[in-house]
Design a protein around this nucleic acid. Structure first.
Lengths: 128, 128
DNA sequence: CCCAATTGTATCATTGACTGATACAATGGC
DNA sequence: GCCATTGTATCAGTCAATGATACAATTGGG
């Protein structure tokens, strides 16, 4: 269900966060669902448990998950759809985004690779 | 002509390479054009001369520039679109994605709104 | 009630990429 | 030949990412 690339230049933690965001955004994970314990997921993916824990922490800080020691990590929010905005403006921005993503696909990038790049850019643009 | 962000999380060298690629791809730099000496450009941008030299070197290795000690750096090819190096390609695509998302933010869209639009485009581009 | 298993968290060390300071080497004009 | 200009090489410092390990809280079985 969750796949990451150990050889990618994209940090493992970022890849994992992107994967989890994708699962939540696409409904593969719903409110109330339990996530695997950090040790189990870390073992399955072949990475350190801290890397998983930090990914969980990042999404917890973002308000998507909640973690309780000894109990586990649960989905508590599935990010909502956008509210109204001028339709033209949305179409324009969406077209630019679509062009950029199309470029990414033509360049040979997979969906998850594109998602990882998107996460990095969102981090840079909205959170720094 | 060349602008980079000192506070960005994207490495300066990568930003500079992307900028130079952009100038070459858009015809702002043509075959035979001289690039600024590494020290001058470094001084203009407020960064280390090595960072500029490494960016030049990267594009030289890619076959777009030629550098001769004591003489300078010149554009020798404007047609090349290397598909070979996934890492370089990734940074190029990431820059385009970043520009699109920056546009979205300037247009007033929130992070979650941007994510929703991204989901829609990914659905369209990769899954249909 | 205890204790052991389970689970997330905190701390410290290591590694590698990025950047910079400085010295070196080649080219060309005078 | 000299020297200013230009790219290159070498070394060091910083920081993010990752990992190894120990700690702390919760749960459930006896």
């Amino acid at each position: 269900m969750i796949t990451i690339s150990l050889s990618s230049s994209i940090p493992l933690q970022d890849q994992l966060v992107a994967e989890l965001r994708r699962l939540i955004a696409t409904g593969k994970l719903s409110v109330g669902d339990d996530l695997p314990p950090v040790r189990q997921l870390a073992n399955d993916l072949g990475i350190n448990l801290n890397t998983v824990a930090r990914a969980y922490r990042e999404l917890t800080d973002a308000g998507l998950l909640t973690s309780v020691r000894g109990r586990g990590t649960v989905v508590i929010d599935t990010t909502e759809r956008p509210r109204g905005k001028p339709n033209e403006e949305r179409k324009r921005v969406e077209q630019i985004l679509g062009a950029a993503l199309t470029d990414a696909k033509i360049a040979g990038f997979s969906e998850s690779e594109a998602r990882a790049m998107i996460e990095r850019q969102i981090e840079r643009i909205w959170k720094s």
